[in-house]
Write a protein that binds this DNA or RNA. Structure first.
Lengths: 350, 350
DNA sequence: ATATTTACCGTGTGCGCACACGGTATTTAA
DNA sequence: TTAAATACCGTGTGCGCACACGGTAAATAT
């Protein structure tokens, strides 16, 4: 039998209105009465009925989301999809989400979209703090206006954010290296390809590379000789990728594995298919459709998945629950590091 | 602006009570009126407000769960935990779950617990149809009493179950074989250990073994020579495991990998540690704590995880949503096949 | 003819909560 | 002293729906 406001009012010898005022700190209650009511509330372990609250309240929960436009970066389709799924689940609870997509790599757009967002005075914000300076300004504004904010995908340490949903990038690089070590069975060279065009301040790429390298540095007694080499390339440009790879394969014919720190592994796979180079182990990130077809024909050996939909999904639910009932989520939420192969990818598609 | 019953009543020139009777097929409505109301309901795209419905309805949704007692098999702690999590989320919606744990491998207990369960006349049932005969009887009773039922973990094909939540066992065995192929880098023998004591009719173990073997059968041009050998052992008995392994290692000193089709891989790991046998690749199932510590010190190379909590979680939510709003879930729901290593296991623990 | 059943339908109440409104004491200002 | 401000609190209404109850008119029984 759940305790209702009416039960508390009865026991405290006050009206339900007074209990309500106490519970919502709406003032107009004598200090003594307040204490008395609060005591009984705690004694009886009152928990508000969220169903009734939602029905009675005309309040809309307005959440705003500031993330890169998926048009410019397909990866962001996934968090967006997760957010929309979460929204459909809580739409009945007067939850409203507005999306403010900014142009990736464009700090001006980032700032501009935030200004639009802020005009709507949302109750809470989810954003990806990719540009440090502007993000710190946003954080300050949120603090001043007491708007809770959640980081997604990228994180800025030491802030008063409600939560962070993202990935453990260095760990995933480390894991990728272990997989590479399993998959490459003879001596040779491992190539790491880093995207060179990214302008974001807080990026995962160097962390992934760092984790990858640290695995091989930590190896002591090995029965294989593996040399690790890093190169940079603008992975948006197919021609640049091709010329970089051409150069690498010209220099060194014993390349046994390639690890790329973003989702463009399908471009490497395409290159190798075209050049008819076989038996190179390929490891990269994210379940893009382009990647999956190469995974399926075994050109790509492993993909690392970071459950981007789940990040979007959980961040929305966390913010909503906080707004609805004040429940604070964990401050740091790493998504699992999924190892995807030809044999299990279909279970991870959304 | 959501359409309410009141809006429909207004447009149809009837009272809300009549609309309600139509919507709930409660009779006492003239056929003409019924058609007229239904037409307007469809026209306006009425969707009931589940919040208000829950608040107004005194109906309790009583769900019953018939699964093996986790005391007898630690694996089942996970689905149970998932179910309890789901329950805590929907408790506010008048959802009630009763658990009927039966003694694993004991069909009498299975049957007895079902009888207890059935006395309570639940609105829906989730159960693991491990014993075929009794399960078919249960299914028949459910059909007769129009009680929806969901299979979890095990499946019986061709039934009218609302849904099935479980794993793709043969696929996971196939995947395990691929991992074994990656991890074993020289010629040698691969040992498959099958539990021999299981009495359940619908078991995953042979399917896992089948998938594992089919991978190696499908290999054409290999640079390694790997021999596959299957043995049976009662994996509940440590002494039997030890003696079986002793025999295998005596016969053949070139065992390079061991795959066990259940969660008792930690017993193999313990054996190898005690005998100080190194560099044998170990692959098994499930994130038991015993397994994780051996994974962490790299005695175990890979664990296959099948998200058992998620199976429990989703099965409860699916049944509930069906009871609440008649929404049918997918009939078959395979959980992802997670590849777990030392580097990512912490993200999969619950 | 009146009584009774049947078919059909409208009204009213309450689920637990939020919040507007207005009321009564008490204090302060005029 | 009377008017006005303030502090504090209770009552009433409605959110959208489910369902009990009762009512009217027509059909049937007596």
């Amino acid at each position: 039998m759940k305790i209702r406001i009416k039960d508390i009012a009865l026991k405290a010898n006050v009206s339900t209105g007074t209990v309500d005022r106490v519970l919502h700190s709406r003032g107009d209650v004598a200090e003594n009465t307040r204490k008395h009511v609060m005591k009984i509330v705690e004694e009886m372990g009152y928990e508000p009925n969220l169903i009734a609250r939602t029905l009675a309240s005309k309040k809309k929960f307005h959440m705003a989301v500031l993330i890169p436009d998926p048009e410019g970066n397909l990866y962001w389709k996934s968090p967006l999809a997760g957010m929309e799924k979460a929204h459909s689940e809580i739409a009945g609870f007067n939850a409203e989400i507005n999306f403010y997509p900014f142009i990736i790599d464009d700090e001006i757009s980032f700032h501009g979209e935030f200004e639009k967002l802020f005009c709507q005075k949302p109750d809470g914000i989810i954003f990806s703090p990719v540009f440090l300076d502007t993000s710190l300004k946003i954080i300050q504004i949120c603090e001043e206006n007491r708007i809770p904010y959640i980081f997604i995908d990228a994180n800025i340490e030491g802030q008063n954010n409600l939560s962070y949903f993202g990935q453990n990038a260095s760990r995933s690089g480390y894991l990728a290296a272990r997989l590479m070590d399993y998959a490459v069975q003879t001596d040779g060279e491992i190539l790491i390809i880093n995207p060179s065009h990214e302008k974001e301040v807080t990026h995962h790429y160097t962390k992934r590379e760092g984790g990858f390298i640290s695995y091989f540095n930590g190896l002591l007694n090995t029965n294989k000789q593996l040399k690790i080499k890093s190169v940079n390339a603008n992975t948006n440009s197919d021609s640049e990728i091709n010329s970089v790879l051409d150069k690498c394969f010209k220099q060194n014919r014993s390349i046994k594995g390639i690890f790329i720190t973003n989702s463009k592994i399908y471009k490497i796979a395409r290159y190798l298919s075209n050049r008819e180079i076989n038996s190179v182990v390929l490891i990269g990130y994210d379940l893009l459709n382009e990647n999956l077809s190469f995974l399926n024909n075994k050109t790509i050996d492993f993909l690392i998945g970071q459950k981007p939909e789940e990040q979007g999904y959980k961040s929305v639910l966390a913010l909503f629950h906080y707004l609805l009932s004040g429940k604070k989520p964990e401050k740091t939420n790493f998504s699992p590091i999924d190892i995807i192969t030809k044999d299990n990818f279909e279970f991870y598609k959304i």
